[in-house]
């Protein structure tokens, strides 16, 4: 082994190399703060997911923010009526980037059973949705699965291509 190789070996043992992307994704994945926000019965499954049996806190997500400015994740849990849609849109616009949306339950995904004049046929008609969690309502395990999928999605993002640093 030459001196150069030995030095390289020594460096590898003592210096931890990483990329900006990895740190960038790691910290956003590890601390997604949801906005406290529920529209219908799915909200109870969401609350249940935060309580003792399923414990969202394991993912660092129990810091539920009441103000959209400090939240990273919007879980649209329940039926979005046409009366409520403007408020949902406004909350989404008030959130600071980077922000993500989970559509939880059949109603939020497609209007569900409510083929009606008063119900928005899927929240993705007004805001971009990252993960769809089907079910009526989905069980807490399903929501947790959706959150883990969202974390995997965040891990695939790169500072160079994410939309929020680009000019509109």
């Amino acid at each position: 082994m030459t001196d150069d190789e030995r030095i390289a070996e020594e460096l590898k043992r003592n210096i931890f190399l990483t990329t900006v992307d990895r740190i960038y994704d790691w910290c956003r994945r590890g601390s997604m703060w949801p906005i406290s926000f529920g529209l219908a019965c799915c909200a109870f499954e969401m609350i249940c997911a935060a309580a003792a049996r399923f414990d969202l806190a394991r993912f660092g997500m129990e810091a539920v923010r009441a103000t959209p400015r400090q939240a990273d994740l919007m879980i649209v849990a329940g039926t979005v009526t046409h009366k409520m849609a403007p408020q949902v849109l406004r909350l989404y616009r008030q959130m600071a980037e980077p922000k993500y949306v989970i559509a939880m339950g059949a109603c939020a995904i497609s209007g569900g059973t409510f083929r009606s004049y008063s119900v928005l046929q899927g929240v993705d008609k007004i805001i971009p949705v990252d993960v769809y969690v089907p079910g009526c309502p989905p069980r807490p395990e399903a929501l947790l699965h959706g959150i883990i999928k969202l974390q995997e999605k965040i891990e695939r993002q790169s500072v160079r291509t994410v939309p929020w640093y680009r000019k509109a």
Partner: peptide
């Protein structure tokens, strides 16, 4: 490392 992740995320986040 939870506090570290929280801090870094808050620094990255947009200032509205």
């Amino acid at each position: 490392l939870q506090p570290l992740a929280d801090t870094l995320k808050l620094i990255i986040k947009e200032n509205t």
